[in-house]
């Protein structure tokens, strides 16, 4: 009898894996509706409860504000620069509304991001001919990311100051984060503090740990999610 319970758990587990795509869709719809009316926030703790999840690779991240935040642009450029938060806000702003897709599976629909086009900062710095890629560094002290120069020049790659039409909060990587719309969300480095033009692509933090460098949503990391762009 005990053995039968063990075996039926295994059976249920296997059935769950087989039926998961249908079950997941139904549950997401149900929980999404419940979460809208849930004042306690408890539904957010349930699996697929929706929304963003917080990932950090270090134990604590310093906080930066108007006075302490700096973004440096350097490397293979003619005019290295350092921007304060106010200087970034004074530049022309671009707003995009796209889905966010994490490589671990969660997706947040139609999320507005706005900020300065990365290409504008690169143009202002004047990329030298030998510059072929960008390395991004973060003030959490550990995270890094990379893009090729042509990826970095896309119109939907932003140095984001606002997310969901509010200033990017600390837990979402504020005050300034990278936003790479067509790629998995690990490319959108949080707590962005450095943009360095390099001669070749240097894999970032997660990429040294097995994730794809060219992280197009739906065409990398062995996943088939619907593209976000």
């Amino acid at each position: 009898m005990g053995r039968r319970i063990v075996l039926s758990m295994l059976g249920l587990g296997a059935a769950g894996v087989v039926a998961a795509p249908q079950l997941q869709g139904g549950l997401e719809a149900l929980l999404g509706a419940a979460a809208d009316k849930d004042p306690t926030g408890l539904t957010e703790l349930l699996p697929n409860g929706g929304g963003f999840r917080y990932y950090s690779v270090v134990s604590s991240v310093p906080r930066k504000d108007e006075s302490s935040y700096r973004l440096t642009v350097d490397g293979l450029v003619d005019r290295p620069a350092t921007y304060t938060l106010d200087q970034l806000r004074a530049l022309p702003q671009t707003r995009t509304v796209r889905d966010v897709q994490c490589v671990t599976g969660w997706r947040v629909p139609q999320t507005p991001f706005s900020g300065v086009k990365l290409s504008a900062l690169l143009d202002a710095a004047g990329v030298r001919p030998e510059g072929k890629a960008i390395r991004f560094t973060c003030f959490d002290g550990a995270y890094s990311e990379s893009l090729t120069l042509s990826q970095a020049r896309r119109d939907d790659v932003l140095v984001a100051l606002r997310m969901q039409d509010k200033p990017v909060s600390h837990s979402h990587g504020g005050p300034v984060r990278l936003y790479v719309a067509p790629m998995y969300f690990y490319k959108s480095a949080k707590w962005l503090s450095g943009i360095t033009v390099t001669s070749d692509v240097r894999p970032g933090y997660w990429e040294e740990r097995g994730y794809d460098v060219d992280a197009w949503v739906g065409r990398s990391n062995g996943r088939t999610d619907a593209p976000t762009v």
């Binding site: 769950g16 894996v17 087989v18 671990t104 062995g222």
Partner: peptide, 22 residues
């Protein structure tokens, strides 16, 4: 070990893993 099984399986496994964990 993501290379062991096809991707659909992994997403489904995540689903079962999450709910059974609860």
């Amino acid at each position: 070990f993501t290379s062991l099984t096809p991707l659909v399986w992994r997403t489904s496994a995540t689903f079962v893993h999450d709910w059974l964990a609860l």
